[in-house]
Amino acid sequence: MSDAPLPDPAHERLTRLWQAQRPAGPVLPWDLKTTYGNRWVRFHSLPESKRYADDEAEYAVLLDRYNTVLDELFADGEVYVVTIDWTDPAETADSPEWTVLRRALHPAGTLWTVLDEASDPGPDQLWYFYADRRPWVRGCLDPLLRAAADAALSGVLVTDPNLTRIHHAYDGGADVILPTPGERDRLRDRHTAWLSAHPSGY
């Protein structure tokens, strides 16, 4: 990771869109719910808020839930697919397991940007975002989504080219950001059985 390439100039438009957000981005995926809380909804990936799949039937359920929402967000359009690596300055390994898996599952991803997460005390962690742009087709991200559901990756971000809709899949569910609270409410109301029972939506 110490020899990471320079960010891909093809992703400059995505950077400008993130920086134009209020508050400005990009942000780490788990900060979406607080950064854009008034437009955020979380869907659980398995019944009864179960976190991990135990068999192929449960993987089928969680992939169907991911793809159903992704279809509603991105059908007939193009998307940016973003995967993330991180490095701890205290570690010396250049290719930890998650890096090898990310490269295998997202070979088209090129370095988009690097975020420096301050840690006090101690050295900061660096987060590397890799992106590619492609047509959205249901099922095209299933290997990535399955790895995210297993916590084998640091989540998978999918966004439309204008950065108005964001889907972040991870182990246990997905965070979704919509352009307006009203659109968020309509999406949420279509999938009430997938919501958390917790009052906060977590």
Rank of each mutant, 00 (worst) to 15 (best):
R134S: 05
R134G: 03
T99E: 08
W98K: 08
V100C: 06
T83M: 03
E117P: 02
L62T: 10
E72P: 06
P96D: 04
D64K: 12
T35R: 15
R103I: 04
V79R: 07
A75M: 06
A118W: 09
S95L: 10
S119Q: 14
E48Y: 12
V82D: 03
G37L: 15
E48V: 07
L126P: 03
V114G: 02
L141T: 12
T68M: 03
E72C: 01
D120F: 14
L73Q: 09
L111R: 02
D120R: 15
F74K: 11
L73N: 07
K50F: 05
G139W: 15
A131N: 08
R133C: 00
L141E: 02
A104I: 07
D94M: 03
L115S: 07
A131D: 05
A118N: 07
W136L: 04
R42K: 09
P47V: 04
L111K: 01
G122Y: 05
D132H: 11
F129E: 02
T83H: 05
T113M: 00
L63D: 06
E78D: 10
A60E: 05
P121V: 10
R133G: 02
D85N: 09
V82S: 00
W86T: 00
D54R: 15
E91N: 06
L70G: 03
L101R: 13
W136S: 11
P107H: 07
Y66R: 01
A93C: 08
L141Y: 01
Y80R: 06
G122I: 00
P96A: 05
A118I: 12
L105C: 09
T99Q: 10
W98M: 01
Y52A: 12
T92L: 05
H44A: 12
L101F: 13
R39V: 04
E91P: 00
V137W: 01
S119N: 13
A93D: 06
L101P: 13
E56R: 09
P135F: 00
V137F: 02
L101N: 11
P107C: 01
A75E: 14
D94Y: 04
T83F: 00
A93Q: 03
E97I: 07
